[in-house]
């Protein structure tokens, strides 16, 4: 959510820069995004450590009577999400060569993989034998995966908004220009970095919740 705000914000600012400032300053948006993701990562780190603390304080973990987690579906989901990180990188490679069609193809594919992941997550939720309030393990399971799922959703929305913008062709004074190109790919890179972030968080989550 916040990522999308700053995305739009900074693009507008850049255009303002050309309009009225004396001189443009270098583009710091990627730096700002990474700083933001460090902060976002700290929320997850806090939640992970809380999870480990609950786990270490409990006499038995998961508490007695918790049904065992199925590994098959989340395993496939993990593979899909990890693969999507490679897919989205292809988009970055494409746009560096000014290939908007390639960008659209790879971003479309990434969004699809993200949606499949979310679908798999919902399917898993609906087939689990414990609910949010069953016990401490169940509560942490749902909140952690849910909070991550929220980030995946935001990531998918970011990717879709880049796709939406990539089709718009701004007809300037003299010539037509694409929204994204070799020299204007902040939106693409930002979405990609965010997506990698979501991916890394999932790997840690998967290890914590399913494997440990």
């Amino acid at each position: 959510m916040q990522g999308s705000i700053s995305d739009k914000t900074q693009i507008n600012i850049e255009s303002d820069t050309h309009g009225s400032h004396h001189e443009a300053h270098p583009d710091h948006r990627i730096f700002g995004l990474i700083v933001f993701l460090v902060a976002e990562g700290m929320i997850f780190l806090g939640l992970f450590i809380a999870y480990l603390a609950f786990r270490s304080m409990a006499p038995e973990w998961p508490p007695a009577g918790t049904p065992k987690l199925e590994l098959m579906l989340p395993g496939i989901n993990t593979v899909i999400l990890l693969a999507s990180s490679l897919v989205i990188h292809q988009a970055d490679t494409a746009i560096k060569k000014n290939d908007v069609k390639g960008l659209q193809l790879w971003f479309g594919l990434t969004a699809l993989m993200g949606i499949i992941f979310l679908g798999g997550q919902l399917y898993e939720y609906s087939h689990l034998e414990f609910g949010l309030r069953t016990n401490l393990f169940a509560s942490t399971f749902y909140v952690l995966t849910g909070f991550h799922g929220l980030h995946v959703t935001v990531g998918v929305l970011l990717i879709l908004s880049v796709l939406w913008r990539s089709r718009s062709v701004s007809e300037g004074e003299s010539m037509k220009s694409e929204h994204y190109g070799t020299n204007n790919r902040f939106g693409v890179e930002a979405a990609e970095i965010y997506w990698h972030f979501v991916d890394v968080i999932w790997v840690i989550l998967f290890i914590l919740l399913y494997l440990l």
Partner: peptide
């Protein structure tokens, strides 16, 4: 940047 997010958690 480092401490505030943990409160959010």
């Amino acid at each position: 940047l480092i401490a505030t997010p943990v409160l959010a958690g």
